[in-house]
């Protein structure tokens, strides 16, 4: 078997999610090549070459891939993927965007968001917002798979020395172009891979009050997230949303503040190791999954939490 792993990156550094996808590839077994497609992405290729278990790094460095447009990546990966039994990418917004195009161009099904590998043809994935877990077997010769990074422990980042090969294949479909992006700037850890996450919900009442969570987050080295209700209400931007249709997180510690715990939210954080819920409604469903529940007004509890943490950290 031979596996092509699509590297997720921002043209300067490899995203940690890629190391988790490599872990899933190792469970499937076989030779693993990594594709780094981007623009001026040489540094990423060097990092990918050091990751554990990588046989070869393929680099497609061209302006056509600079913004990861799905039309261009779809054609590139479909062509390269013909030589592999499995094609894997992280189930982030990049992988979710272009991988179904790869599958369609290869006339195979895609297996989305896998959280387990049974064997080379059989995978485990959540359906119905994680309220059911399906085991599915593919009948296709090529398996196109997106991987839920939080379900696989990342491989070592500095363990190998794979060869790097530059590709001269350029796929520019000419159908789409990049206009602009507005990316959140934050010094805090990445939400999807942070070991501690503190999230706020509708109970926060406005965006200004999220500063209270940010102060606690900075004490803990945590990322700040939000429920869909808080994002829909305009308190915070969409990239902070945790849930079925937002980001999937599984930190060591998840602190839910003023979040009632709709199933769509639980789908995004239910695999966290320790869950803390702070909510003044003791009937809130979030308490049914919380390891530690505190029934309290968050506007009193969060400043106290900050003070108590300062004492012990």
């Amino acid at each position: 078997m031979s596996i092509l792993v699509f590297a997720e990156h921002d043209n300067s550094s490899l995203k940690q999610a890629t190391l988790s996808v490599l872990a899933a590839a190792k469970e499937i077994g076989g030779d693993i090549d990594v594709l780094v497609a981007g623009e001026n992405c040489g540094a990423v290729a060097e990092q990918a070459a050091k990751a554990d278990g990588v046989n070869k790094v393929l680099v497609a460095d061209n302006a056509a891939y600079g913004h990861f447009l799905g039309e261009n990546l779809g054609e590139l990966v479909a062509e390269l993927g013909k030589n592999y039994s499995h094609i894997l990418a992280a189930a982030g917004t990049t992988g979710k965007d272009f991988m179904p195009r790869v599958a369609a161009l290869l006339d195979v099904a895609q297996i989305s968001d896998i959280m387990g590998v049974v064997d080379a043809d059989t995978f485990v994935r959540p359906i119905y917002a994680g309220n059911a877990i399906a085991t599915v077997k593919s009948k296709d010769s090529t398996k196109v798979i997106t991987v839920r990074p939080t379900a696989f422990d990342p491989v070592a980042a500095e363990a190998g020395s794979a060869s790097v090969e530059n590709l001269d294949v350029v796929k520019d479909a000419g159908l789409s172009s990049f206009v602009k992006e507005e990316l959140a700037q934050s010094d805090r850890p990445d939400l999807a891979s942070a070991s501690i996450v503190i999230s706020g919900g509708r109970g926060m009442q406005n965006g200004e009050n999220f500063k209270m969570l940010e102060q606690v987050a900075d004490l803990l080295g945590a990322a700040v997230g939000a429920s869909r209700a808080a994002v829909d209400a305009g308190f915070v931007p969409n990239d902070m949303q945790v849930g079925q249709t937002g980001k999937i997180v599984a930190p060591q510690l998840y602190i839910a503040v003023g979040i009632s715990g709709a199933i769509q939210h639980l789908a995004g954080m239910g695999d966290s190791k320790v869950i803390v819920a702070i909510n003044k409604d003791e009937e809130a469903p979030i308490f049914q999954v919380a390891d530690y529940g505190l029934v309290a007004d968050l506007f009193e509890a969060i400043p106290q939490l900050e003070e108590e943490l300062k004492k012990v950290l």
Partner: peptide, 17 residues
């Protein structure tokens, strides 16, 4: 894709208050 089986997720126990 053939669905081999569908299971309920592992239930998470409520902890303490």
């Amino acid at each position: 894709l053939e669905t081999v089986k569908v299971e309920a997720p592992a239930a998470r126990k409520a902890g303490i208050k």
